[in-house]
Design a protein around this nucleic acid. Structure first.
Lengths: 225, 225
DNA sequence: CGGAACGTTGACATATATCAAAGGGAGTGG
DNA sequence: CCACTCCCTTTGATATATGTCAACGTTCCG
């Protein structure tokens, strides 16, 4: 399990001795595709790190519309914040694939960080990062239309992977369009129309899950609205 | 300044000796109504605690629509998360009234918490609380209509102040309706119509800034949609 | 008293959701 | 290898919520 701890953002950079201490707070859990790991409002005795697989964190409206808050991939942790504020999970977690999770148990973990400020600092950094992301999501949901959000999505990918220099930027969508719709706060039909719109405006061209950036400058212009 | 530190959530419960240590990281700042304390994307050398007055944290769209993320009242801290993720403020802060702020300087504060796990734990709790609130905001923006959001707003106030037992629940709005609109992710015209709708449905009755809950059960029903 | 900010109302525009239908693509079983 | 099914995706017609713009009344405060 130490191997997995090391791969996670939260505990990377620690020496084996520190990680050994963590082990008392950790167990392993196998998940299968579609499985609900926890429901919103469940009691929160633990948080998780993804070793293998992918997990989505989501909210569901009474009418059944789904808003994905984040997708946790390998090495990512989720539900860290549930340990403190209120002790309940603020959203639902569902496995998108089969996989394995590290389960970090609340009480033991807290007593560990009480004595290990550097772990606390890592956690603080992680929570800050989450806050930034949610901040951004709020901004997009409240202040921008879907075309803009889609443009932002591409720009993020381009910047994170430093693709801007290339001549031909091709992005292979890592999510099904249905899932992407939910990430962007909309539904597949609307997303499909947004793809069409950006295509018609000669900003991108789409072929299944392959998106070619035709006009990067225009893409930035779209994102600015 | 120790007095103000004690009043803040972040540092309440500490003894004077611990707070003395904090003083090396703190200075005082006077603000006047309307003043911009920082802009989104500014370099973030510090975070703040409100001693006197009220501050709003907001995002602005290119078209000028404003989304308030939170309103910091006396004792509240804001922009804590900016110290870590990226070092820039993720939103703009503006004084709603004249007031005074404690300014907690980044580098000194970090070196203090490196040696004081209990301060780190408090900070973690605070960040978790913020995450919960943003989570909720995302949910509302993405999944519910304005009538529902307004109902939620009232229910929150009722539950926070334990008003449910009273016969006649009267809420005096602590915000101008323009501000409330921005908090709920909408504009004054739409909010006004929402007030009207809830009034017509005999859920509330409105007289200026005084809102009387006419039918609590119905209010909960509205919030459930 | 007068002006500025706030609040409401109406007519209208627009973005997005909803509903219904149909076309692929991938995988399965015969 | 074909036929079948399931799920994803797209498209069209329509409904609805919310934003926009303009006008007017109201309150607040210098």
């Amino acid at each position: 399990m130490i191997k997995y701890l090391k791969k996670s953002k939260l505990f990377s950079g620690f020496d084996d001795a520190s990680l050994e201490k963590m082990l008392t707070a950790v167990s392993l859990k196998t998940i299968s595709k579609g499985e609900i790991i926890f429901y919103e409002k469940d009691q929160a005795p633990a948080f998780f790190i993804v070793c293998v697989g992918r997990v989505k964190i989501l909210k569901i409206s009474p009418e059944g519309k789904e808003q994905i808050l984040m997708i946790a991939t390998e090495g990512a942790s989720f539900a860290e914040a549930a340990l403190f504020g209120g002790g309940r999970y603020p959203a639902t977690a569902q496995a998108m694939t089969d996989g394995k999770l590290l389960v970090i148990h609340r009480d033991r973990f807290i007593s560990i960080i009480e004595r290990n400020p550097s772990i606390a600092l890592n956690l603080i950094a992680r929570l800050s990062e989450l806050l930034h992301k949610l901040n951004k999501l709020v901004e997009e949901l409240s202040l921008t239309d879907i075309n803009t959000r889609l443009a932002h999505y591409f720009i993020n990918i381009i910047e994170e992977n430093k693709l801007a220099e290339q001549d031909n930027i091709v992005i292979t969508l890592s999510e099904k369009k249905t899932v992407l719709a939910s990430l962007l706060g909309t539904i597949p039909e609307t997303l499909s129309r947004s793809f069409k719109k950006l295509s018609k405006e000669k900003v991108i061209s789409v072929n299944g899950a392959e998106v070619t950036i035709v006009d990067l400058e225009k893409l930035y212009k779209f994102a600015d609205e």
